[in-house]
């Protein structure tokens, strides 16, 4: 039986063609009476309506549970990001929500290069044998 080569599948590159927001859902876990949930409770009362309207691509789900408040982002790549927001005020809660919204769900990692590319080099690899012999370096 001949060995079949692995078929070259197109790689999905977000933004090429169309851009898709990677954060699809945010759950807000809140305690009804707890003191550490005070900021989140205020956020739900005052700002969540406008925030949800300005982000129509994201589903917001409120979960009532005893304990410290936690916000969780669910991403298209299947990962989750959870942040404990105990004792944070309204503005800080909003900042943390923005952080979830703006990330792609990828794990934080070191970035060594300025530009990450999967394209082949456009100018090609330099070869000493193709240089004009009159100006070629002679050993």
């Amino acid at each position: 039986m001949p060995i079949k080569p692995i078929p070259l599948l197109p790689k999905f590159q977000n933004g090429l063609g169309s851009f898709i927001l990677q954060c699809k859902k945010i759950t807000l876990q809140v305690d009804k009476a707890g003191g550490s949930s005070e900021g989140l409770r205020q956020f739900l009362k005052l700002r969540l309506n406008n925030y949800a309207i300005s982000n129509p691509k994201i589903e917001f789900r409120i979960v009532e549970k005893h304990g410290h408040p936690i916000i969780k982002g669910h991403y298209i790549n299947g990962r989750e990001k959870a942040i404990c927001i105990r004792n944070l005020n309204v503005d800080n809660v909003e900042n943390k929500l923005n952080l979830l919204k703006e990330s792609s769900g990828e794990q934080l990692r070191k970035r060594t290069n300025k530009v990450e590319s999967i394209n082949q080099s456009i100018r090609g690899i330099w070869s000493p044998l193709h240089v004009d012999p009159s100006i070629r370096h002679k050993i």
């Binding site: 590159q13 090429l16 970035r111 290069n113 300025k114 530009v115 990450e116 590319s117 999967i118 394209n119």
Partner: peptide, 11 residues
């Protein structure tokens, strides 16, 4: 400066 081609990620 960033040397880019189409489809590249710029950090």
């Amino acid at each position: 400066p960033f040397l880019v081609t189409e489809g590249d990620k710029v950090i």
